[in-house]
Design a protein around this nucleic acid. Sequence first.
DNA 1: CACATGACTGACT
DNA 2: AAGTCAGCCATGT
Length: 117
Amino acid sequence: MSQASKTTGNDFFEQVYAVVRLIPAGRVTSYGAIARYLGAARSARMVGWAMNASHSLEDPLPAHRVVNRNGMLSGKMHFEHPGAMRELLEQEGIEIENDKVQNFSVLFWDPQRELTL
DNA sequence: CACATGACTGACT
DNA sequence: AAGTCAGCCATGT
């Protein structure tokens, strides 16, 4: 593979996927938290981009556990069907109200805080 | 090359 | 507390 960069396959994307897969069930995190953990605190949008590209992944990605810093399901529109994100979260015991995660501060899972010390 | 868009965030009002 | 504005970075037109 001479072409290390195939659009998808960048280390950044892979690292994002790795962190997302590490999110325990019943927990949620934010794009900024992942970006900051990867050393790209100002590239939170790039994390969202990685999620958008996750559709090409063969392995399932718990993207429903990734929300914005306000705990709002900003990415629900990008799922197979609007509302799927909410259902998936509720299946894990997360309470959703008005497309927003309840007890977000409690359910928040920060990789920088949970993984690295 | 310039402008607009987007699964974001922080600061300001 | 809720709404608005600006900064950031990659992609699309």
